[in-house]
């Protein structure tokens, strides 16, 4: 028995050590540097809470949080709305089911960066051209150059790509619902809308939760699309938190300062995660 125990230890401890060394340790280091004035090279001194105080005073940081959350919440809602609709459609009695499913899932396998490059062209050239043809002046310019609309462009790209994954999840959820339930419901004379709210939705509610959580988590980290499409602009209107930490931390030579920003971000994510983990645990029970 003891032997078995030691085998299990050998199976897990190397992984534990490596994970600690390459994930937990850098996390701790990040926290450590946030109390210094390190530029990323050379010497440094401890500066106490100065970086944190500055983070809270920094409009640029505050704006990046506002943008990131606005973007993440709206994208999450849109993604779930669209993917729910598409999944309901794909689950109905339609033709070309497999082909359509394959097409709708396609964006999920593509590189986010390259997708963003392609959309960049659409916004810069295709849309203005179309708008001009049809005389829609408000869209005749590149929306990525408009601080009020640039974020919409990023939402479009992110949603276009993320709908794929969430659709498949909803579809999987819908397929777990036995068709007898629908028949029973239609025998009762319930309308389509009623059937959805009273039969379908409660049964796929766990999928809804998971989808919201996964989508939100991904969107809060948005980076590739920003790099490819706006570089944080125009002005600083699309600077996401990840992007600001990368940009400010390296280019601005403010490694320590952005580390403090990262720690604040971390705390916020943890607060959200506590809620998320509780959802995940609830799933555990279902297993």
């Amino acid at each position: 028995m003891k032997k078995r125990g030691s085998a299990y230890i050998l199976m897990t401890v190397p992984a534990l050590l490596l994970f600690f060394a390459f994930h937990t340790f850098p996390t701790l280091q990040g926290i450590f540097y946030s109390f210094t004035n390190w530029k990323g090279y050379g010497d440094f001194d401890f500066v106490g809470l100065k970086n944190y105080i500055n983070v809270f005073k920094d409009d640029r940081v505050v704006d990046s949080y506002l943008f990131t959350f606005k973007f993440a919440i709206i994208s999450t809602l849109l993604v779930n709305l669209f993917s729910m609709l598409i999944a309901l459609g794909l689950n109905a009695n339609i033709r070309f089911k497999n082909t359509l499913r394959a097409v709708y899932f396609l964006p999920n396998i593509l590189s986010g960066l390259i997708v963003a490059f392609i959309f960049n062209y659409i916004f810069a050239n295709f849309l203005p051209e179309m708008a001009e043809k049809f005389g829609i002046n408000s869209l005749a310019t590149n929306i990525l150059g408009n601080p009020d609309l640039a974020w919409v462009g990023i939402v479009i790209v992110a949603v276009w790509q993320a709908v794929a994954f969430n659709t498949i999840l909803y579809l999987a959820g819908l397929q777990t619902i036995p068709s007898e339930l629908y028949e029973a419901s239609s025998l009762d004379g319930a309308g389509k809308w009623k059937t959805f709210w009273h039969v379908t939705f409660p049964l796929i509610a766990p999928f809804f939760t998971i989808n919201m959580v996964l989508a939100m988590k991904g969107f809060l980290m948005v980076f590739d699309q920003i790099v490819a499409m706006t570089g944080g602009g125009p002005g600083q209107s699309t600077e996401s938190i990840s992007f600001l930490i990368y940009k400010g931390g390296f280019e601005g030579g403010e490694f320590a300062y952005q580390s403090a920003n990262a720690v604040v971000y971390f705390v916020i994510i943890v607060a959200i995660s506590v809620v998320q983990i509780r959802f995940l645990q609830r799933r555990e029970v279902d297993l």
Partner: peptide, 24 residues
């Protein structure tokens, strides 16, 4: 503990690791 240690790390945002991991 291991299970929760690994799984909860999913929620650590990458940017906090980004700079130190480059050094490491």
């Amino acid at each position: 503990f291991l299970y929760y240690y690994f799984v909860s790390a999913m929620f650590i945002p990458f940017p906090i690791i980004m700079l130190p991991i480059v050094k490491e």
